[in-house]
Design a protein around this nucleic acid. Structure first.
Length: 600
RNA sequence: CGGGGCGUGGCGCAGCUUGGUAGCGCGGGUGCUUUGGGAGCACUAGGUCGCAGGUUCGAAUCCUGUCGCCCCGACCA
């Protein structure tokens, strides 16, 4: 491809001010993407080539394990989503599905994911166990009305995703296929030249039993990963389970009531009364909003030096009711408190807060659902709010063993924790960018959408399902986050828009221009992805652009062309080889193969 | 939704405090020179200063409202 006749590179001299992280800046500066609106980007020709390369790698690996590509619609009828009982959760309030009505007033959503559509199709086309297993996938634009789009393609409202869905006759078959997909994913990310880690994950709104995320480790990542150095454990912080450190024992000589004027935080209470946070229990109140305007006030307790993990809390509460939990929020808004609660000793709440604090006229449930983290329930003696403004209390021999208290894990694991009493390794923390996520969905969707098959015994059974996502555009940006330098992008050759760029330094020199054409055509004939910078610019301009857009090899045609010699330059390590033109192709092929095989 | 910042040619910015009809660098066009690290000279095109009201003889500048964008958080996968 020639720069002059195909597309303007559109590289920028200055970094656009809107971009914060390096990968986003480079994508804009090097002309790969253009912003059309918040979270909405145009993929320019170079970008599309990257997307296509990533797609090809994905397709190859998935086809290898027996998946089949198809293409599903993006406009989904609300009915389908109502069947799976996800319509309200995905559209109401802070739902992420863009939705609209047609001229008849019929409701539709722009697809953020495709479980409903594929399950409904599978239920029509799969009738017998003899047709199983099946796995379909597609690579296509997804729409998500993100609360806050950010960092370019990292979290955008329109992005390209590979999503796959598998159907099985048994849970075992699902589990073994899930493993296979996990392996295929490892291969895909390696083939893209990325360094990733697989971590245990929360399955979120997609649901299902087991799920695993694939993370590109990078400081700009939005997720936190906790892991042990040995590799024995790795999990998203949302899911991670660990042991808290030992609490400090509470002294005996403390009076039952502590006057703690204006000491609303654990820290203030501890500083003023010579206590350790691990000797206290912190009480945080939440409001759970379920489908159908059903509200439940939640009282969550945890040891004072620990933090509540709201994802875990959400999941735990969600299991308590047959209704879908839509939203979980800390109760801190003054109006909400005044309207629904009475005599609330905010800042001095204890685990035994009276149910009478919920006003009779409130439309909330009239009892606090009390959820106690293990770290708190393990304490028999502790300090907590006295349920009386300006007072804390020593709870002696307090027991959480009654039906009033639900004990569970709602604690945030953190670095430095140990994962078990037998393992002395401490957890470490890193930031990660989630580029893939695989789920064992089980029968969640087949049940709701009535997707059944006839088993060997002639009985109708629900299909077992898995689903598997890869953020294609996110991979591209994550790859830059992991592969760049001062001068610009350093693409892994596997996903670079071109393998090599030819830079003639002076096209007005007929020797150079002849040689350039000769080399360019020779590379084309040999099916090498080659870009020819045939602009009539000065050499410096072309060097800068080539570095910025990050093509792994440069062929520089310059003053030595009179002796039939050119230079082959490697973008990443800056090594320069002076080569005679008749050896150029051969040398390039062997050099690029080394790079291809150097899977990180 | 809460907090912060910003909207002035394609990009990066100045001007605003103290109102007087818009400027700099990069980029674009033409010509000549230059040609291995973002060239030089000359000429040139391009902006109703986010939008709407208001104050004023006069508004990019002051006032009010509104829209949008970015960052942090809440949140979300």
């Amino acid at each position: 491809m020639r720069v002059t006749t195909s597309f303007p590179l559109g590289t920028l001299r200055d970094t656009p001010s809107e971009a914060e992280i390096i990968s986003h800046q480079l994508l804009l500066k090097a002309g790969y993407i253009r912003r059309v609106n918040s979270g909405i980007y145009a993929y320019m020709p170079l970008m599309l080539r990257v997307i296509e390369k990533i797609s090809t790698i994905i397709e190859k690996e998935l086809n290898n394990i027996g998946c089949t590509k198809l293409l599903l619609p993006q406009l989904h009828p609300a009915d389908l989503w109502k069947k799976s009982e996800r319509w309200e959760g995905y559209t109401a309030g802070e739902g992420i599905m863009f939705n609209l009505k047609d001229r008849q007033g019929k409701e539709f959503g722009l697809a953020p994911t495709h479980e409903e559509v594929i399950t409904s199709i599978a239920s029509e086309t799969i009738n017998s166990y003899k047709q199983l297993p099946q796995c379909f996938y597609q690579i296509q634009t997804k729409f998500r009305d993100e609360i806050r789009p950010r960092f370019g393609l990292m979290r955008s409202r329109e992005f390209i995703m590979k999503d796959g869905y598998s159907f099985h006759s048994s849970e075992n078959d699902l589990a073994s296929f899930y493993e296979k997909v996990g392996n295929a994913y490892e291969n895909i990310f390696k083939s893209c030249g990325l360094q990733t880690v697989g971590v245990e994950a929360d399955s979120g709104a997609i649901g299902g039993a087991s799920s695993k995320e694939f993370m590109v480790t990078a400081d700009a990542g939005e997720d936190s990963i906790l892991f042990t150095q040995s590799g024995s454990y790795a999990a998203n912080i949302e899911k991670a389970v660990s042991l808290p450190t030992q609490p400090k024992p509470l002294k005996d000589n403390i009076p039952e009531w502590l006057e703690t004027p204006h000491q609303k935080t654990i820290l203030e209470v501890c500083e003023n009364n010579n206590l350790d946070p691990s000797q206290t229990i912190k009480v945080v109140i939440f409001l759970a909003q379920f489908e159908g305007d059903f509200y439940v006030p939640i009282l969550a307790c945890i040891r004072g030096d620990q933090h509540i993990n709201e994802v875990k809390l959400f999941n735990l509460i969600n299991k308590l009711h047959h209704l879908n939990l839509l939203n979980l929020k800390k109760i801190e808004d003054k109006n909400t408190i005044e309207k629904n609660l009475v005599d609330l000793p905010l800042g001095f709440i204890g685990p035994d807060l009276d149910n009478k604090t919920i006003k009779a006229c409130s439309n909330w449930e009239k009892e606090w659902t009390r959820i106690i983290d293990h770290s708190a329930s393990d304490l028999s003696k502790f300090i907590s709010g006295g349920n009386k403004v300006n007072f804390h209390k020593v709870f002696q021999e307090f027991s959480f063993d009654s039906n009033d208290y639900l004990i569970g894990d709602i604690r945030n694991a953190k670095k430095g924790d140990k994962i078990s009493i037998y393992d002395h390794e401490e957890l470490k923390e890193k930031k990660g960018i989630e580029i893939g996520h695989i789920f064992q969905l089980g029968q969640k969707y087949s049940e709701k959408l009535n997707a059944k098959f006839s088993d060997k015994d002639g009985q109708l059974k629900n299909l077992w399902m898995g689903c598997y996502g890869i953020g294609v555009t996110r991979i591209a940006q994550a790859a830059i986050e992991q592969n760049h330098d001062q001068k610009g992008i350093c693409w892994p050759i596997q996903i670079s828009p071109f393998e090599v760029i030819i830079i003639p330094t002076n096209l007005k020199d007929p020797i150079q221009s002849d040689l350039t054409e000769q080399i360019y055509n020779n590379f084309l004939t040999n099916k090498i992805d080659v870009l020819l910078d045939d602009r009539n610019d000065r050499a410096g301009v072309k060097f800068k652009d080539a570095e910025l857009i990050g093509i792994p090899f440069q062929i520089i045609i310059g003053r030595d062309s009179i002796n039939n010699e050119v230079e082959l330059l490697c973008r990443t390590n800056n090594t320069k080889l002076k080569i005679s033109t008749d050896k150029l192709l051969e040398t390039f092929i062997s050099e690029s193969e080394i790079m291809y095989n150097k899977k990180s």
